[in-house]
Design a protein around this nucleic acid. Structure first.
Lengths: 220, 220
DNA sequence: TACGTTTGACAACGAATAATGTCAATATGG
DNA sequence: CCATATTGACATTATTCGTTGTCAAACGTA
């Protein structure tokens, strides 16, 4: 232990024109981008701290400066990608005609387009997320719940899901979100062997069918 | 190398009243059961060869007698559980009234009941399966495809999915299967916080809605 | 009974990797 | 210019685990 405590002084001083906090958060961001690249390419299992550092162009010391372990970085990567996707989907929805089917189509289009254009993102969001740890499982569950809630609010009229015949609205929504996720997963694992538009329309058809079913029940 | 080749002789002789093949396949089966227990309890990542041997009551030598590595055992475990589930589902369907909705309900009931009564099985089939390796990903994709095909045949009339509006029947089926899988996953991760019957009915509602939608399209 | 087979307990070797530590080179502010 | 904060390359330590090998005891068969 040679560290000395200098009460006033130059600890945490500027470097390269940036404050300590700025440098730290820049390095942290570098690791998040490296994580997106490495986890998306090699998967979580095959990723090592060294490979993440190599990709980030930084050394282990700085990795542990920002993250307790690679699982913590993965959680951050996941949250970052979800946030970006969410922003894109919301933007597309806002730009679409204010009509339920068009809204849903616009959101689904951006979702599937992202999965297609960024296979690494697809791999992280759809596949790698599972089975890492209990904490990560919880993160997935919470994220999916948020997405389900968001869909319910945004395309509210489609989701006027009747409570008839012993069903539960939240479970129905979960099923619809699940159908979309699963179609995307299947599409990804099949190396995008179907045209984007067909995938979007097929996924959308499930929402539309459920909406009609609900309206039919309301009438009865 | 002290192994000598005795051409006629007692190599591969009986032991404990069982032939070599019988003993081998019994040991193999022990490892599969151990894998179900360990992978279901600890997950694939946390499972070691030693822990699998301890659970099986056998030593490493016999592990490598039957499997190249723990991934190979996992594949076998997965196939075994899928087969059992498939048999149970088919049996329930055969016993149900020969009417599409009742058939689908019976199948879904057995599916969700299995997930509820065997959380380890649920964990392996719904969560651990992802992100282990490219080979395992392929196994999942093929299994899901088979299940989709089976559902299409068994409840054929429900799946009279119209090809209208730019959709694809296989993708629609994938979406329906995905909704069920995802509801089960959600239910499992939420520690089975909803009543079984509500889960079954909600999952079923999506199939029913899609069927009505298809019939409506046929009429048009 | 005598021989080789089979079994199980456990040692041992090597590889990989997480996490921490060392040290010299460099940059900064006074 | 000097003291010190900062950085980066690399070493080190400790642990874990996969895989193969050793050996004695138990067993079956001729």
């Amino acid at each position: 232990m040679t560290t000395r405590i200098s009460s006033s002084s130059s600890r945490g001083r500027a470097y390269g024109g940036r404050s300590l906090d700025e440098r730290r958060s820049k390095r942290r961001a570098q690791f998040v981008e490296a994580g997106i690249a490495v986890f998306g390419r090699d998967g979580f299992r095959a990723a090592t701290v060294k490979s993440l550092c190599r990709e980030a162009g930084l050394t282990e010391r700085y990795f542990y400066e920002s993250f307790a372990n690679s699982e913590a970085l993965f959680a951050e990567v996941y949250k970052t990608l979800v946030k970006r996707l969410e922003d894109d989907v919301v933007a597309a929805i806002d730009a679409a005609p204010a009509e339920p089917e068009a809204t849903a189509r616009a959101g689904l289009h951006v979702f599937f387009e992202t999965m297609y254009r960024q296979p690494g993102t697809a791999r992280i969001l759809l596949i790698e997320i599972f089975g890492i740890s209990g904490d990560i499982d919880r993160l997935y569950r919470e994220t999916t719940q948020n997405f389900t809630r968001m869909l319910q609010e945004l395309v509210g009229s489609i989701f006027a899901l009747g409570e008839g015949s012993g069903t539960d609205a939240r479970i129905l929504s979960t099923g619809l979100v699940g159908s979309t996720i699963h179609i995307a997963m299947y599409w990804t694992l099949n190396r995008y062997g179907d045209p984007l538009e067909v995938v979007v329309e097929s996924s959308l058809a499930l929402y539309v069918a459920m909406a009609r079913q609900s309206r039919a029940q309301d009438r009865a």
